[in-house]
Amino acid sequence: MSERHWGGDYVFLFENLILKDFRIRYRNMSLGILWSLINPLVMMTVLTFIFGRIFPRNDVHTQPFPVFILCGLVPFNFFVAALLTGATSIVDSAGLVKRVPVPREVVPIAAVLSNCVHLLIQIALLLLITVGFGLRPNRYWLWLPVIWALYVAFVCGLALGSSAINVYVRDTRYVLESFTTVLFWLVPIFYPFSIIPPKYVGIYQFNPVAALVMALRNILIDGIAPPMSLIVNLVLAASFTLSFGFLIFRRLKYRFYEHI
């Protein structure tokens, strides 16, 4: 069993699908793109207030707390949004999957990449606030595109696998929603990695979301290069989810037509 060869232009296709998504989402909103900024700013303010004023901790007071929080929120928000839109993408594009002979892999990947538009805006916000708090850009900022690219690849892999499974088991979406709620507490968003008791370190060490958060803090706040262990973690996570994601997707895609 093999799929028909699609002889088109992938870059042009992705560009069009991402643009389409972006237009549909923002055409009917008066504030448009500003929504991408409002949500993280509100969350940043709330978390800064709660953990800066209500439960102040001495060890985090030495650093600009809003930057610290945003380093956690931006990766987490992207993870949740991209994973959920990715996971439901095949079912949501039933009209496309059942009627247009476009390579199916394109659909979940385009869903994740569409979220990158907001991501870029939020990263710009993060960098702006970082500089606003008097932290100067340093040469380790060059690591940022690398770690973000690995992270996006990691989420693409997850979206591929989960979008295919979601066609067969429609409550995959709810499983993922609960999972992301748990994840919020398991990623060091409002607390530093250093306060985690040694016996629980394992939960964090292999978590790629936490790895990106910690690497961001190293680069932006501490002004040091992220340790190799975090980079290796992200490389492994990306290659693992991408290869498994493609594998699952390839096995399941031939029956999409019958199950949507």
Partner: peptide
């Protein structure tokens, strides 16, 4: 929600046009 022109471009890309 897309205009005719936007739909033409998306569709052209999906049909494999460069």
């Amino acid at each position: 929600d897309l205009t005719g022109a936007e739909n033409v471009r998306v569709n052209a890309a999906m049909m494999g046009m460069t």
